[in-house]
């Protein structure tokens, strides 16, 4: 696991021992230099656009500070955090966000895997069509997708009520955005439609990396399609699945655009990002809003950490396995 372990490739280096020793220290030094040379610019750019704002947000979260009233800015320590964590609105936003994340990511993973399989295995005549079609929802702007789904379910502009009146509970008068769970259902539907292709694309990349030789070998051994899926395909694309899952979960946890467009946070559909937006941008309470953002960030870090530790997603350990 450790990245400092010598990679297997170099252990079997055909060169003779004395040469090898000198070579390693030379090469490791030049590798180190090259590594920073190559990765440095990306690193610097990322830090430049985020390190300052991140630091600023943490710093400002310790103040009572209203943008329109800078004169009365005062240091309040962790008060903002206390106010947030004791407020039921925060917990409601957390649960709404968790709900949306779990529901959409779970559905998307299954659906996305199916789509990836179809893209990988479909008849060559329909494969390009299917692949192009799947790419379209991903390319469509979230705001546009949110508008489309909102207009579709809206009691005045929509067609859903007249098309699906045969489903119990749906009538011409069903107001989808007038109730919490119905609103969340539509939000989840829009998110799933929009982001399943993301997962399926990443999974397709993983699928393509499953060694064909192993598949053939399993086939020769008489393994069924199902067995091959579980024994060969999925284990060999674990990295791709985890990357897809990790990114999609973290992305889903910041859900904002769809809620902003569809409900504006009404009926208890407010996500944590929306809560932060409302404090910072709408109320101009920079201190309180920054604290919400910092807390949101901490929750997200926790999720990422859990993923990385529990599922051993570790891109850095490429060579040490």
């Amino acid at each position: 696991m450790s990245t400092t372990t010598l990679p297997p490739g170099e252990k079997t280096d055909p060169r003779s021992a004395p040469e090898k020793k000198a070579g390693i220290s030379d090469r490791s030094r030049s590798e180190r230099k090259l590594g920073w040379l190559l990765a440095g610019p990306a690193f610097v750019v990322m830090l430049a656009v985020t390190a300052y704002p991140i630091a600023q947000a943490i710093y400002e979260s310790l103040f009572s500070y209203r943008l329109t009233d800078p004169a009365n800015r005062s240091f309040t320590g962790l008060t903002n955090y206390w106010v947030i964590l004791t407020d039921p609105i925060w917990w409601q936003a957390i649960w709404v966000t968790v709900f949306i994340t779990v529901v959409t990511v779970a559905v998307e993973l299954v659906l996305g895997f199916g789509l990836a399989m179809v893209m990988a295995k479909a008849l060559s005549s329909i494969r390009p069509v299917v692949r192009a079609a799947i790419l379209i929802p991903y390319a469509v702007i979230t705001v546009v997708s949110a508008f489309a789904w909102q207009f579709a379910f809206d009691i005045n502009t929509g067609f859903v009520n007249s098309w699906f009146a045969w489903i119990p509970g749906v009538t011409a008068d069903t107001d989808w955005f007038g109730d919490r769970w119905q609103s969340l259902l539509v939000i989840c539907l829009a998110e799933i439609w929009k982001t399943t292709p993301f997962i399926s694309l990443l999974l397709l990349a993983g699928l393509a990396q499953v060694p064909e030789v192993l598949q053939e070998a399993a086939k020769v051994d008489g393994a069924s399609w199902w067995q091959r899926l579980w024994r060969v395909t999925i284990p060999n694309m674990k990295a791709a699945i985890m990357v897809a899952l990790l990114f999609r979960s973290l992305d889903a946890f910041r859900v904002f655009d769809s809620i902003f467009i569809m409900t504006g946070g009404a009926n208890g559909t407010e996500s944590v990002s929306f809560l932060a937006y409302r404090q910072t941008i709408a109320r101009l309470e920079i201190g309180l809003g920054s604290a919400v953002s910092v807390l949101l960030f901490l929750v997200v870090v926790l999720i990422a950490f859990t993923f990385i530790k529990a599922f051993k997603v570790d891109l850095a350990s490429t060579r040490g396995e």
Binding site: L38, A39, T50, I54, L250, I281, V294, L296, F297
Partner: peptide
Amino acid sequence: LDFPGKKVILSTALAVAIFPVISI
């Protein structure tokens, strides 16, 4: 490549990716 700090770069990338846009 094997060089110290690539974990730092990856973690930074992850942190940047997950930091809420709203607060930046």
